[in-house]
Simulated scan of single mutants.
Amino acid sequence: MSFSQDVKQEIMNHIPPEGCCAVAAAYGVACFGKYFDSKGMVLHTERTGIAQYAKKVFSLAGVEGKIYARGKEDSRMYEFAVKDSEQIEKMFSLFGGTGTEPSLRINSKIFQCEHCVQAFISAAFLCSGTITDPSKEYNLEFLSNRYGLIQDFSALLMGHGFLPKTTRRRGGNVLYFKASEQIEDMLTYMGASGSSLQLMNLKVYKDLRNKANRITNCETANIDKIVSASGKTIEAIQYLRENGALETLPETLRVAADCREKYPDLPLKELALQFDPPLSKSGLSHRMKKIEQIAATLMERNCNA
């Protein structure tokens, strides 16, 4: 299963108890299903488990619906529906309204205890939510064609400490989270604490890997820099030797040249410690530049000869 499916499975493992939380969960299914009006309520889903979850929470809330399987086996769609007139009347008696309102808005009176909002949000995610594999990117979102519903949902989440963002996409409304910490909290709040922990562990791994990559890149850059600087000096030393000029250098420069050839891979700071007594990094750098300058002058003279 995908990470999103794992999250939904974890949520489905926690059916809310009979009472106000079951009503809140059923209300979440109704609001974020495909249809919810005076003709009834319909939820479409590709997962039979979600349809069964919807049927269960509606039954716990006192409303009976039916599950239908649509389409061929390789593209099966499951539908949970409340279409019986008596059950529709019970449903609106629980949720308030008549189903003829021009815009669906969240009825906050549904939420009777501190866990009702969690049950509502969890059911909403089962019906309309998705989460991207966190190994690729951090993104959790809810989709709905109902603008007023998404705005009310955003306000509800903000009232419980979350900071969602909203946008429009292909004619629909999207409420989403991009911050990993918010997604972790959201998963925990919806009852998917195992998935939240998995995301946290993955984030730690990614942070460690990125840090290791930065260190490696930095070390590689430093090595390249050392090799480049060392190579330039060694080329100068070799040119001086080939032209019989190395032995004419002052003793301090000859000793520096010998040390550089002996330890071609050492950075200047460590190379300076090989002298007796040790030199300063700046002092050794000055000697190396002097050797390079002498070689450059000799080369120019030979070219002009």
Rank of each mutant, 00 (worst) to 15 (best):
S180T: 12
I121R: 03
E137H: 11
G191R: 01
Y138H: 09
D224R: 15
E219F: 07
S193V: 10
L143R: 13
R209C: 10
F120E: 03
G148P: 00
Y147D: 04
R168M: 12
F177E: 02
R146A: 05
R214E: 15
T130M: 13
Y138G: 02
Q118A: 07
Q118S: 12
C127H: 01
T220M: 12
G96R: 05
D133C: 12
R146P: 03
M158Y: 02
K203M: 11
R146N: 13
Q198D: 04
N213T: 13
A192N: 01
K206G: 07
C113R: 05
Y176I: 06
Y138R: 09
R209V: 15
R209N: 11
S193F: 06
A123C: 03
T216Y: 15
T216D: 11
F125K: 03
V117H: 00
Q198Y: 04
N222L: 14
N201R: 12
L104T: 06
V174N: 06
L156C: 08
N213M: 14
C116H: 02
I183G: 00
E219V: 09
N213Q: 15
K211L: 15
L104K: 04
G99Y: 08
L143C: 11
D224T: 14
M200T: 07
F95Y: 06
R168P: 00
Q198G: 03
Y176D: 07
I226A: 01
G191E: 04
S196F: 04
K109T: 08
A119G: 03
S154C: 10
L175M: 13
S144G: 05
I131F: 05
L187H: 09
I110G: 00
T166K: 01
Q182C: 04
G96L: 12
I215A: 14
K178L: 10
S108K: 14
D185V: 01
T188H: 10
K206S: 15
S108A: 07
C218P: 00
G161H: 08
G129K: 04
Y138C: 06
N213W: 14
Y176E: 08
T167W: 02
Q112N: 04
I110E: 01
I110P: 00
V204A: 12
E101R: 07
E219W: 06
Q182S: 11
I121C: 08
R170E: 11
S108L: 11
V174A: 06
E181L: 14
S195L: 09
L126N: 01
A179H: 10
G161W: 08
E114N: 11
I223A: 14
F153D: 00
L202A: 02
A155S: 15
L143W: 11
P134M: 05
N173Y: 11
A119F: 01
E184R: 10
Q198E: 11
R169L: 12
M158E: 14
G191I: 03
S180F: 13
K109Y: 05
F142T: 03
L175P: 02
L187D: 02
L208D: 10
T130P: 01
F95K: 02
T132Y: 05
N107G: 09
A155T: 11
E141N: 10
I131H: 03
L143T: 10
L126F: 07
G129P: 06
R214G: 06
Q151P: 02
K136R: 14
T132F: 06
H160D: 06
G97R: 00
A124F: 03
D185A: 13
G99Q: 07
